[in-house]
Design a protein around this nucleic acid. Structure first.
Length: 554
RNA sequence: GGUCCUGUAAUGUAAUGGUUCGCAUAGCAGAUUUUGAAUCUGCUUGUUCAGGUUCGAAUCCUGACGGGACUGCCA
């Protein structure tokens, strides 16, 4: 039944490798550095790596790339694990590059013994000069020709803490004239007298990314090590080290990271937004972090479908937000409970409805779900409707309430507006309507037809809640690529708080797990800061609004 | 200037030398609708350019042009 789906370039490589017997089974890994929260870009990588392992019956490890003790923290480890699980993936093993520190040290000794690494006393500045640049070849360090014995001794001295930070480094001995700057005797170990989140104070030398990542891949027998495009220059070094060390030949493949419009994705920038209080926290619902999207109401399914939709490739890209929004609407439409909430209320009095009378109307929870069931919604003489649903002098195509216009109150009766009252400022304060008793939803014998259907909340039964309306965090597609600071483009209206929305009574039992569609308004979820005393809802995404479009046309 | 990666519709992706370049989103029309949602139907927009190879090129080759990455003791 499954439709034929074309393979992305990595799947092609894998299928070829499997077919040719290069590997019996594939092993991938997701290798985050625990120095920040995961974002939607990481989600693509997670879906790719774990997804590939699932698809080809292989395994995927979760490996924390923790080789820099000064930036990494356990808090991040925990959040990363939570996010990966929340997305619905299970790792084969939970691993840490720091688990391999002893092995990596041994690898470095092997390199020294082969005459392929040396201890260098040059300062960072001196090394910068030695490196040359893209046009000029580099020059050899004066320490490049130390003997193996001397290097061995010096490296051990580094390990036992004889030197201060920055005093010495271990460098691979490759080629200072190599056209690839990364091959010009790259640093592979540096001294850092810092407390590591897992190894504590056991080490004062730490391997660099290039001497840790590929080796860790190899130790774990990762067959396909997938990373983003900017590491493509590292591949020759990745291969060189594995070859010299004569260890399992993991292979690196690169794909282009996914960029999303109207947001930023770099950890540095996201950290800045948090630190400078442009957002409340890492999980602020406006953040493109997985935790922020979770809090906003995105579902794991919608994020995975999104990752699937945008696929992977090697070219630069800017994925339009609408692709993400489509996926979240698509999923929420199937699962969200429909409820009625009025954000900007105006009072409607149904003058011919008996005073004091209340009806319990049976209303469908979700027309998209046969098993969604129904709930009771109380109806009475006075109801709140949305202020924008009434116009004193409506244009022709306005399918809502206006003088002498008829609309159906969703799940209830058809009403007609007779008159309205205004305050001194000209604001409408009250609308007087009559209802048609034989137009009751499900039992309509009136023969009337109302083009418009509106949501409403019975005034005497209404409860209140705070509703947070979120919009894109930035006003431009690519804030990082504009003139000036990216923060100059923060959308001042990214959050609008409605502190006193009227909600139908059934919503007081709202739960964190449930997703809701506030009829005609959008998809919402309960915020984690919500309490029975003060309910708080987050808007995940609006509904598509063709009326808004119509209006824009004028 | 060096090395490397990359150019298919507004956006993302497909085509693996062989119909008329497919799909999704977005946009536009219409149908339908007790959500101006959803659903359904139709439509619009594309191979960066120039040569070459070939019966045949988005695909292979050459060159140009465009976009991007690399000069941390970050990852």
């Amino acid at each position: 039944m499954s439709e034929e789906r074309s393979l992305n370039f990595i799947e092609e490589i894998i299928e070829k490798d499997l077919k040719e017997g290069k590997h019996k089974e594939i092993h991938t890994r997701f290798p985050p550095e625990p120095n920040g929260y995961l974002h939607i870009g990481h989600a693509s990588s997670i879906c790719l790596n774990f997804g590939l392992a699932e698809k080809y019956n292989g395994t995927c490890n979760l490996r924390f790339d923790d080789t820099n003790p000064t930036t990494e923290e356990t808090e991040y480890v925990d959040s990363i694990k939570y996010d990966v699980e929340w997305l619905g993936f299970k790792w084969n093993e939970e691993l840490y590059t720091s688990d391999y520190f002893e092995t990596l040290y041994g690898y470095a000794v092997i390199l020294i013994n082969k005459g392929l690494a040396y201890v260098d006393d040059s300062t960072a500045e001196e090394m910068g000069v030695q490196r040359g640049d893209t046009t000029k070849p580099g020059t050899n360090s004066p320490y490049r020709d130390r003997t193996i014995e001397e290097n061995l001794q010096l490296f051990e001295d580094m390990r036992v803490g004889k030197y201060k930070d920055g005093e010495k480094v271990l460098r691979a001995k490759i080629d200072m004239a190599h056209p690839n700057l990364l091959m010009r005797d790259p640093v592979i170990y540096r001294i850092r007298h810092a407390h590591h989140h897992r190894t504590g104070d056991k080490w004062c030398i730490y391997p660099m990314y290039d001497f840790a990542h590929g080796q860790s891949d190899s130790i774990e027998h990762i067959t396909h090590s997938i990373c983003t495009l900017e590491f493509i220059h590292h591949r020759p070094l990745y291969d060189w080290l594995i070859e010299q060390l004569e260890i399992f030949p993991s292979k690196q493949y690169e794909f282009a990271r996914r960029n999303l419009s109207y947001t930023v994705m770099s950890k540095r920038k996201l950290l800045q937004l948090v630190n400078e209080k442009h957002v409340a926290s890492w999980d602020d619902p406006r953040m493109p972090t997985i935790s922020g999207m979770r809090r906003r109401g995105y579902t794991p399914e919608s994020i995975r479908n999104f990752a699937d939709t945008i696929g992977i490739a090697k070219r630069e890209n800017m994925v339009d937000l609408s692709l993400l929004e489509f996926n979240v609407r698509d999923h929420l439409n199937k699962i969200a409970k429909r409820v009625m909430v009025v954000l900007d209320p105006v009072k409607v009095v149904i003058t011919n409805y008996p005073e004091g009378q209340t009806e319990e109307l049976e209303v469908e929870n979700n027309p998209e779900d046969e098993n969604g069931g129904t709930r009771k919604v109380p109806f009475s003489r006075e109801v709140w409707i949305e202020r924008e649903d009434f116009m004193e002098d409506p244009p022709k195509k306005f399918f809502r309430l206006g003088p002498d216009k008829m609309v159906r109150l969703k799940g209830a009766y058809i009403i007609k507006a007779d008159s309205f009252e205004k305050d001194a400022d000209g604001n409408i304060t009250e609308i007087h309507c009559t209802y048609f008793p034989d137009s009751k939803s499900g039992h309509d014998t009136s023969g009337l037809k109302a083009k418009g259907v509106m949501h409403w909340v019975s005034i005497p039964h209404a409860k209140t809640a705070e509703v947070r309306l979120y919009d894109r965090l930035f006003t431009v597609e690519d804030p990082s690529n504009e003139d000036g600071d990216f923060k100059d483009y923060i959308n001042p209206d990214s959050l609008n708080v409605v502190s006193n929305a009227y909600i139908e009574p059934a919503l007081v039992d709202a739960s964190l797990e449930e997703r809701y569609q506030f009829l005609r308004l959008g998809y919402f979820c309960l915020d984690k800061d919500s309490s029975p005393e003060k309910l708080i809802f987050n808007r995940t995404v609006t509904l598509k609004d063709s009326w808004a479009k119509e209006q824009k046309k004028g």
